[in-house]
Computed example of a mutant assay.
Amino acid sequence: MTGRTGGAGVTGGGPLIGVSTYLESGTRWGVWELEAALLPAGYARLVQRAGGLAVLLPPDAPEHAAAAVARLDGLVISGGPDVEPVRYGAEPDPRTGPPARERDAWELALIDAALAADVPLLGICRGMQLLNIALGGTMTQHIDGHTGGVGVFGHHAVKPVPGTLYGGLVEEETSVPTYHHQSVDRLGAGLIPSAYAADGTVEAVELPSAGGWVLGVQWHPEMAEDVRVMRALVEAAGPLSPSGA
């Protein structure tokens, strides 16, 4: 812990883990059709299963990111749409999705704030890509074989790099749920790869030079039963709740 005013000191609770969300218009529930801040429930459930307290972070002005992060014990940047290529100095490929500029700006500001404050940080899928971009890396805008089809998660093996943070958490090759068509090209400053797919795609990155705990995974642990990665984030953030022991 780093002296933050987060939730780890709350009686009966674990560390307070913020998870980024996104805005969607035309969302329906009951009789309502309104813009909503959304996040698949698997993210919050994974935090809870790992012993943390999940709090959802809707997009906000980038200048508010440091204040938000100061109240957290850990941060998860969730998956979602393609990052706008202008963020890493590229022209959009025709297969790159439409930009989500407000979300890009907010989540990049959250990452910068977490790195500056040594708040434990986990990037999931898009979140790993944003971590790479925040540190000056670039992306390959289209690869094949890492989804199960439109709206369907695929599965493939990832092999950890021995001696890395991720390799210490998961020593064996594992099959993971995956849904991405972009991948890391040039690594950002200080990042090292800590897992690969069989085709050579970088599937995890970490920042060993950081003062805090920083890891990105290209797959979706919230869609699986394995809690080791999230539990490691929660442990780095502070004492576990009894449910995560």
Rank of each mutant, 00 (worst) to 15 (best):
T5C: 14
T5Q: 15
T5D: 15
G6R: 01
G6E: 02
A8N: 08
A8Y: 09
T11N: 04
G12N: 13
P15T: 05
P15A: 12
L16G: 01
L16C: 04
L16K: 02
I17G: 07
I17L: 03
G18C: 10
G18L: 07
G18D: 05
V19F: 08
S20F: 05
T21L: 06
T21A: 15
L23D: 09
L23P: 02
S25Y: 07
T27S: 00
T27L: 01
R28Y: 05
R28P: 09
W29M: 07
V31I: 06
V31P: 04
W32S: 11
W32A: 12
E33I: 04
E33M: 11
E33C: 09
L34F: 11
E35C: 11
A36M: 14
A37Q: 03
L38K: 08
L39C: 05
L39V: 07
L39I: 13
P40V: 12
P40Y: 08
A41I: 13
A44E: 06
L46P: 01
Q48C: 03
Q48N: 07
Q48E: 14
R49C: 02
R49Y: 04
A50H: 08
A50I: 05
A50P: 03
A50V: 08
G51H: 01
G52M: 01
L53Q: 09
L53G: 09
L53N: 09
A54G: 13
V55K: 00
V55D: 00
V55N: 02
V55G: 01
V55C: 03
L57A: 03
L57Q: 09
P58E: 01
P59G: 04
P59L: 05
A61Q: 08
A65E: 00
A65G: 00
A67H: 09
A67M: 10
A68Y: 14
A70F: 01
